[in-house]
């Protein structure tokens, strides 16, 4: 069964209404990333998470500003089912173990932003602003071994280009890892979703703008994937 996940950035409109709408349309999971969360904004953010959770009936992943166990607990209590960590995991890999031990691996999604340059994939910090020396495949494997339950991989080369997902890198990840891979970055048309499942071997595909601007209605996308013999929830 392949999942269609909707990612909802804070700037994309009223998150509560959008979450409810995509949950109704048949999105399989909602991912809410708050890329601007500062210390002062945490309380508002937590309240927002709670309001979204109260209004949707599908699994709900929340990321942004998670640095310690207390942050995870706060968001789970607010109604998140999973949390997504990115820069904080790269800087403090031990955080993955801590989360897995406290709440179980199924709670811990490790998000990786990576860019392919010089024929290798490098992981980036802070929403893609700072390059590290960590390589995608090694880091994803390490995250799995430390207890990550899922990997959310965004290809910075493909993100925003709407020309398809990073299927080659995704298939390599899928072969190397034994945990589910969520593909992110590059969705532009329905065929891209079929490709990411068939060629990229992804377990779920995440998209924002093609859903948000109504370019691809979720029910239509799911009927199309069914016609390509890909199992999706209708």
């Amino acid at each position: 069964m392949k999942g269609i996940n909707f990612v909802n950035l804070r700037e994309a409109g009223d998150p509560v209404e959008l979450g409810r709408e995509y949950s109704r349309q048949g999105a399989d999971e909602l991912v809410f990333l708050d890329i601007t969360a500062s210390y002062e904004e945490r309380k508002t953010f937590t309240e927002l998470v709670s309001r979204i959770a109260a209004n949707i009936n599908i699994p709900f992943t929340v990321g942004g500003g998670i640095n310690e166990i207390e942050d995870v607990e706060r968001l789970l209590v607010a109604g998140a089912d999973k949390i997504s960590i990115n820069s904080s995991a790269l800087l403090h890999p031990q955080l993955i173990e801590n989360i897995a031990t406290h709440f179980g691996s199924q709670v811990c999604v490790v998000a990786i932003d990576a860019r392919e340059d010089d024929k290798d994939w490098f992981c980036y910090l802070k929403g893609g602003r700072e390059r590290t020396e960590k390589k995608l495949f090694e880091w994803a494997y390490e995250a799995q071994e430390r207890g990550a339950g899922e990997i959310l991989f965004t290809s910075m080369n493909h993100d925003g280009v709407k020309n398809g997902y990073a299927n080659e890198a995704l298939a390599r990840l899928s072969n190397k890892l034994s945990i589910p891979i969520i593909a992110s970055g590059g969705a532009g048309k329905k065929e891209h979703f079929a490709d990411v499942f068939l060629k990229g071997k992804a377990d779920a595909a995440l998209a924002a703008s093609v859903f948000h601007f109504g370019e691809i209605p979720i029910p239509e996308l799911k009927s199309y994937l069914c016609s390509r013999n890909i199992t999706v929830r209708i």
């Binding site: 069964m1 999942g3 399989d28 691996s105 199924q106 339950g149 899922e150 072969n175 034994s178 945990i179 589910p180 377990d203 779920a204 929830r233």
Partner: peptide, 16 residues
């Protein structure tokens, strides 16, 4: 008990 590589544990996601 996974039988092949595609058998991921935990069983996580939508099923029928």
């Amino acid at each position: 008990v996974p039988q092949v590589h595609a058998d991921k544990v935990p069983h996580m996601g939508w099923n029928q």
